[in-house]
């Protein structure tokens, strides 16, 4: 149950397993500059300050250079968190465009955290 923390505000978003960073943020009521949403244009790059992610599709060399595959660059429309992530947007901030979706995401996160805490006290180490 990965979370994505958005710097510099420290906003924490809850993602479903397998969900991309972009779709998670959108689903939580946030917006930022995106284009194709399919890994082709490179507009949605953010910096990953901590945590691990993988790409759920092949990404073209014209979109991510060799250097960008090694540094903090995260192509948000194709990146699926492997652990909790902290990201920072480039040259802009996320805009909260729907407080309603934001509240729903917040509740989902609280439920997931409560569930995780409950399973932990029950002695299981199972983690999604």
């Amino acid at each position: 149950m990965p979370t994505v923390t958005i710097q510099p505000t420290g906003e924490v978003i809850y993602l479903e397993p397998g969900e991309t960073v972009l779709s998670g943020l959108y689903k939580a009521g946030f917006a930022y500059t995106v284009g194709c949403r399919r890994g082709g244009c490179g507009i949605c790059k953010v910096d990953c300050r901590s945590g691990e992610f993988r790409y759920d599709h092949p990404v073209a060399d014209s979109v991510l250079t060799e250097d960008e595959r090694a540094d903090d660059t995260c192509l948000s429309c194709r990146a699926v968190p492997a652990t909790d992530l902290t990201i920072e947007l480039r040259g802009e901030n996320v805009r909260l465009v729907s407080t309603f979706l934001h509240q729903i995401n917040e509740k989902a996160r609280q439920r997931a955290e409560a569930h995780a805490a409950a399973t932990q006290t029950a002695g299981t180490t199972h983690k999604e």
Binding site: G35, R37, R38
Partner: peptide, 8 residues
């Protein structure tokens, strides 16, 4: 619209 690779 975009194809699955992001070509418009």
């Amino acid at each position: 619209f975009f194809d699955p690779s992001g070509n418009r």
